[in-house]
Design a protein around this nucleic acid. Structure first.
Lengths: 127, 127
DNA sequence: ATCGTTGCAAATGTTTTGCATGTCA
DNA sequence: TGACATGCAAAACATTTGCAACGAT
């Protein structure tokens, strides 16, 4: 358990939006933490493998990371404006996806579902 | 309407798996077509904007392209082994996603759903 | 002391861009 | 001809890797 490991974990714990490795690294640097970019990538990869962090690809191609609130399989509802993220359980969709895959002759099914929109806070604002 | 434009469109027409720009370019070259990589990217971008081609990000980070069969909003069921792709309409999921977003105070909802699995052909094979 | 972690710098791979050239209409 | 498409080479990114120095236990 190194200082860098702790720093990355701590930053993720207080961030509830999907964030790129580059940005997390920049924030750590700004906060005075001396952490290498490669280490940030390393840690994020490890945390994803450990199931403690979710990752997804942003539109611009970078990988975005966020700590997991739900332990089990879940989906995200994400505000396109401010990045606010709500984690969703969706049993109906799970069943539906598995069933539909099976009906098409597929095994070993998995799926990714992501809902995006503008949250009420951002809709309300003049933003 | 240039020769290159036609070549890219023709290749996409006869390809029904998601394919990277790099690979499409390589195939065009192998087929004797003289097309620049930048032009392939250009064309693919234009076709995506025109709604004639779907794009998604592969696991390794590149963008994959495939001609659209369905004009309207739809989803994909993709074989992780051979890349076989089935286009799906899923009204239940559309409604569900919109409703769930609204219930969380989101407007302007959109979503992405992708189901992956191993198709029967690939399951059957020793592959 | 040992062994995994770190972090720089360089490599990798994809996509974009600048700009001179070619080509369609 | 005149505007736009092309395509090379170089730039711009995100990410990975090699490897020597470092630090936790």
């Amino acid at each position: 358990m190194t200082r860098q490991k702790r720093a990355v974990a701590a930053l993720l714990a207080e961030t509830d939006q999907f964030t790129s490795a580059q940005e997390l690294h920049a924030r750590l640097r700004n906060a005075g933490e001396k952490v290498g970019l490669a280490t940030v990538y390393n840690q994020l990869g490890a945390l994803v493998d450990a199931g403690e962090v979710d990752s997804r690809r942003g539109e611009s191609g970078e990988t975005l990371y966020r700590r997991c609130d739900l332990v089990s399989h879940h989906h995200h509802l994400i505000c396109r404006h401010c990045g606010l993220t709500v984690e969703l359980s969706a049993p109906e969709v799970e069943t539906w996806a598995r069933e539909l895959g099976r009906r098409n002759g597929f095994n070993n099914l998995d799926h990714v579902l992501e809902i995006t929109g503008i949250c009420d806070r951002c809709s309300g604002d003049s933003q």
